[in-house]
């Protein structure tokens, strides 16, 4: 197990006042999952479900309110100095917007070298070789190193972002919506590239996405999130073939397919996502759930097994 997340919580205080906050957004409200070496674990859900906040906590850009994140068995919370440096070297990230994720004032060479130089004193020649090497891996010519980000298209920029993430030979890459800002015809190029480098460098991916078709195509295991909680998790095959949680079912049913004869039923789901500041009682999904019973409004459903490695939190879902 490479990455383990245990009962993770992140509450953002809201409201004015210098010392006291008047409330909290429960962005992540008790999430657990683990990712094995070489696996692609996907966190999927709609806006506000907390998936990006989890990614930011794994990347140590946010501090958890409660719970623990373990990498290789070591708790992130206790890391400092050399331990933190070592962690930073092993976990890299690729973000959604390739226009915002590359500093427009720096040359590609500097951008890609940044993580290397943060960790080692590298000679000029060695650095140059390494930059050109990773550019080659992502399919860009060595000449690209001397240009600025604005001289590239969106797809090429995302390749640069991937090259940068690869520069320090990480073990794990967090992919936050890596293709959703790209044009349709470019997405496949980037997705295929990500699959290739995963195989070549034995990478572990934690991917954050809202696009279910992408998740089904790309991941080996998936966790479905709703309003800060995991509602269902398991191997991609199991979750997509036999979704057990009504939310997963509704989500899958809602995706418009590029086939005029297989369109989503238009009554698949009603209502909208509640506020994370005042989430519904019991099961947070119950106001929108087509199968909700009285119990759902009062009792938080426990996390339970729904089959081999497949689990969920629903009063109505039964084990296989």
């Amino acid at each position: 197990m490479l990455l383990e997340v245990r009962d993770l919580k992140k509450h953002f205080p809201v409201g004015s006042g210098l010392l006291r906050a008047s409330g909290a957004v429960r962005a992540v409200d008790g999430v657990s999952f683990s990712v094995d070496v070489g696996e692609t674990f996907a966190l999927v859900g709609e806006s506000g479900c907390g998936k990006t906040t989890i990614a930011r906590m794994v990347l140590m850009l946010e501090r958890p309110t409660a719970g623990a994140i373990l990498f290789d068995g070591k708790d992130l919370a206790g890391m400092s100095g050399a331990g933190l440096k070592a962690y930073r070297r092993q976990v890299q990230a690729v973000f959604q917007d390739p226009y915002a994720s590359l500093n427009p004032r720096l040359r590609v060479r500097t951008i890609i070298a940044e993580p290397i130089l943060a960790h080692e004193r590298s000679g000029r020649a060695a650095l140059r070789r390494r930059v050109e090497e990773v550019l080659d891996v992502v399919g860009l010519p060595a000449a690209a190193a001397d240009l600025f980000p604005h001289e590239f298209s969106g797809g090429q920029r995302q390749r640069i972002a991937i090259a940068r993430a690869l520069a320090v030979n990480p073990r794990c890459i967090v992919l936050d919506e890596p293709i959703s800002a790209l044009d349709v015809s470019i997405r496949a190029q980037v997705l295929n590239l990500l699959a290739d480098i995963q195989e070549r460098f034995r990478l572990t991916y934690l991917i954050i996405a809202h696009d279910l078709a992408l998740v089904e195509h790309f991941s080996t295991r998936v966790g479905v999130m709703y309003l800060g909680n995991m509602v269902e998790a398991g191997p991609t095959d199991a979750v997509f073939d036999r979704p057990r949680h009504p939310y997963t079912q509704a989500l899958l049913a809602s995706v418009p397919r590029p086939d005029p004869d297989h369109q989503p039923p238009l009554d698949a789901i009603r209502g909208e996502i509640a506020s994370a500041m005042a989430p519904p009682s019991g099961c947070k999904f119950h106001p929108r759930c087509p199968r909700a019973i009285d119990r759902c409004a009062v009792e938080v459903p426990a996390w339970r097994s729904l089959g081999r490695d497949h689990a969920g939190a629903c009063h109505l879902a039964e084990g296989a």
Binding site: R56, L59, M60, L61, K85, R88, R89, V91, Q92, A93, F95, Q96, D97, A100, S101, L102, N103, R105, L106, E114, P115, A118, H119, A161, R164, V168
Partner: peptide
């Protein structure tokens, strides 16, 4: 900005972030 977050992920210190990513901007 995302590139500031990525600089942290890369392992850059506060000084680098100040002088490479913030000051020029």
């Amino acid at each position: 900005r995302e590139y500031v977050a990525l600089a942290k992920v890369a392992g850059c210190g506060t000084g680098t972030i100040f002088f490479r990513h913030l000051l020029p901007n």
